[in-house]
Design a protein around this nucleic acid. Structure first.
Length: 635
RNA sequence: GCCGUCGUGGCUUAGCGGUAUAGCGGCUGAUUCGUAAUCAGCAGGUCGGGGGUUCAAGUCCCCCCGACGGCUCCA
């Protein structure tokens, strides 16, 4: 059955002429009007004939749900054959319509327009998004009930077909355990895996009640990392020097890792022609909303990933099988997605974000699968080095049924690698461009989940972009393409680190960023002005981001503020240090709340310690004045 | 996009019909100090923007903007 539901100021109809299938009606029903009503345009279809009772029940339930949403208690049931090309017999249609009318009439004021008449009608639609909804109702069994919800947009918003298709994609959820078994989610005991449970709830039940703002929002401001920018569009943030530093370090780290992995860094435009034939098709296959802008007479869109630029580049390249697997990466600053307003929160979901986007061209599916495995391991490693451990996220693996049937071992090995059950989603048919993908989903302090790293096997775009390589026997072949974001969005990594720190604070731990990401690594606190020159001397020996708190404040206050800034090493310098030549270091990573851990060491020892802890990680200089007295406050 | 809550100096905030509180921060001065807030003084606000009601509006009403939460949606 097809339903088109219109929340209207009023609906009015007038019968004109009978068709051969017209039902016999009283004079009073030949016209009708209902104010403030939900009008349900209904087409009963041939599949409904199998089980009319069920069709009635489902339709009633859908109508009731929508009526509750738009808060109306009047319903106009309006037969509308043009909603379907596969109609039921008129007899069944009338039976179903009457059934719906009867079931609704207890709770609502219901009117039903007569079946089988040509009618003139006027409907005044309220125009809010929920005011125009369509529902497809399918009987259980033949094709599991899929209720399609497509808000009919009153404005010309660009919503890709893929985005719409997602509403109709039919999928099965399972838990995959280490023994390779797939379990029904409902009957699987998730209590030993609280985080997975939260993630599963988040994905499936969509119950996301939250009683407070996410803690990272306060932290990103207090640590002077990032802030909202009222002068821009929502979801476009400003980053203060410390935030820019942390982002640079993370970006450089991912680029370094990708380079070691064999990827070539490239840069591609941020805007593209919406009417470019290849891009246009791709837009319709990617579930995202775009910003569109005008340039001269051309309609452009802002990229939401680096796929476009890299694929267009690949298209023009001469590639031999000897060059495969061929990897390219771009740190997209920015990728733009015009997310809905209500979805934007702090650094978790943005409209402009930095995404490391790597693509790998592979000879065939075998090589792709092999690469996929390697990149899966790579992603785990990248997050681990950022301070996000396997315990901090849950794995989701999504694939088509066909792919799974022929690659069970791969999927099972992925669960084994992380040594815990994973959530699996399987599609009967391929709705998207990929046949396999995974994401690592970080579960935050409020039990919300968001995807970080992801890898996908793309079987569509080589063809679409006409990318080819010369095989050993000289023929042109289509590569299989992998999409990979080793860390996920950089801003989202910061969000995850801050949320993790907030959760640790709640557990009574002392929060901090990994040393290599800490803006200030060593803070020097001279006891009084006369120790300042020695503090300066000491700071010069430090081979890291060191600053000096030369403000005229008590020691207690300066130490407290260093703590509030999560400074990993705090060194107080006074007469004793000058005499003895050793320093007293407060080590944050070994401290407990209200119990600072203080260690006596030489400047050289501290230097060595920091070098070891940051080995292999990128380094950037302190982007702020060394003396705190010379530093502005950002808010 | 819809519904709800909120929006007072750089930050946090009191006031909820009679032209505005306090703390932090800033500035000035004193203090030269040993690990979670040294003392004193000064400056800084047409209470998110616009419109309306009233003799009188942060305070009541309407519209807009922004943030947060829910719905919806999603890497």
């Amino acid at each position: 059955m097809q339903l088109l539901l219109i929340h209207s100021d009023y609906i009015e109809y007038q019968t004109k002429k009978q068709t051969p299938v017209a039902e016999k009606i009283e004079e009073s029903l030949k016209s009708g009007r209902l104010e403030e009503a939900l009008t349900a345009f209904t087409a009963v279809e041939s599949v409904d004939e199998l089980n009319p009772e069920e069709a009635i029940e489902k339709a009633v339930s859908e109508i009731e749900k929508v009526a509750a949403q738009v808060k109306t208690d009047r319903i106009m049931l309006y037969p509308y054959a043009h909603l379907s090309s596969d109609l039921s017999s008129p007899k069944v249609a009338v039976e179903v319509l009457k059934g719906i009318e009867k079931a609704l009439s207890g709770k609502f004021e219901v009117k039903r327009a007569p079946f089988g008449w040509y009618k003139a009608f006027t409907v005044s639609c309220k125009g809010h998004p929920l005011s125009e909804l369509s529902r497809s109702i399918r009987p259980e069994g033949t094709a599991k009930a899929v209720c399609k919800t497509v808000a009919v947009e009153e404005k010309e918003e660009v919503v890709s077909e893929a985005l719409k298709a997602e509403g109709t994609a039919r999928s099965y959820w399972r838990i995959l355990t280490l023994d390779g078994e797939l379990h029904e989610v409902e009957s699987f005991d998730l209590t030993p895996y609280p985080k997975l449970q939260k993630f599963v709830n988040y994905e499936m039940s969509k119950s996301r009640a939250v009683e407070r703002a996410p803690p990272h929002v306060e932290l990103m401001r207090r640590l002077e990392l990032a802030d909202y920018e009222p002068g821009s569009d929502s979801g476009n943030m400003r980053y203060y020097p410390k935030g820019r530093l942390v982002k640079s370090l993370l970006e450089n780290y991912v680029l370094d890792v990708a380079t070691d992995f064999g990827a070539m860094e490239v840069e591609t435009p941020i805007m593209y022609d919406m009417n470019h034939p290849t891009l246009k098709k791709y837009l319709d296959r990617f579930p995202a909303r775009q910003y569109s802008i005008e340039s001269d007479k051309r309609q452009m869109f802002l990229r939401f990933a680096a796929c476009f630029g890299q694929f267009l580049m690949n298209h023009d390249m001469t590639i031999s099988y000897k060059n495969l697997p061929l990897r390219m990466i771009e740190m997209t600053r920015y990728s733009f997605r015009k997310e809905q307003r209500g979805e934007l929160v702090g650094l978790r979901r943005l409209r402009a974000f930095t995404m490391p986007d790597m693509h790998t061209l592979c000879e065939d599916m075998d090589q792709a699968v092999n690469q996929f495995k390697q990149q899966y391991d790579l992603c785990i490693d990248v997050l681990e080095n950022m301070g996000i451990h396997v315990d901090d996220y849950e794995v989701a693996i999504r694939f088509t049924r066909d792919f799974y049937e022929s690659n069970k071992d791969l999927v099972i090995s992925m669960a084994k690698t992380v040594n815990k059950p994973v959530l699996v989603e399987m599609w009967d048919t391929r709705f998207f461009y990929f046949v396999l993908k995974f994401e690592f989903n970080f579960v935050d302090a409020l039990d919300k989940a968001s995807a970080l790293s992801t890898v996908q096997i793309d079987v569509e775009n080589a063809e679409r972009y006409d990318i080819s390589y010369a095989s050993a026997d000289g023929k042109l072949e289509r590569p299989t393409v992998l999409h990979c974001s080793p860390s996920g969005a950089i801003e989202r990594c910061i969000y995850a680190l801050l949320e993790k720190a907030a959760m640790e604070t709640e557990e009574g731990k002392v929060p901090m960023l990994p040393l290599w990401l800490s803006p200030t690594q060593v803070r020097v606190v001279p006891v009084s002005e006369k120790h300042l020159s020695f503090a300066e001397e000491f700071s010069k020996k430090m081979d890291c981001r060191v600053d000096v708190d030369d403000r005229d404040l008590s020691i207690g206050k300066k130490v407290r503020e260093a703590g509030r800034e999560w400074v990993p090493y705090v060194v107080v310098i006074g007469d004793k240090e000058i005499e003895e030549g050793t320093i007293n270091v407060t080590v944050r990573s070994e401290s407990e709340q209200n119990k600072p851990k203080k260690v006596q060491m030489t400047p050289e020892e501290l230097n060595t310690r920091i070098k070891e802890e940051t080995a292999g990680k990128p380094y950037r200089k302190l982007p702020l004045a060394k003396y705190l007295s010379a530093r502005p406050k950002f808010f």
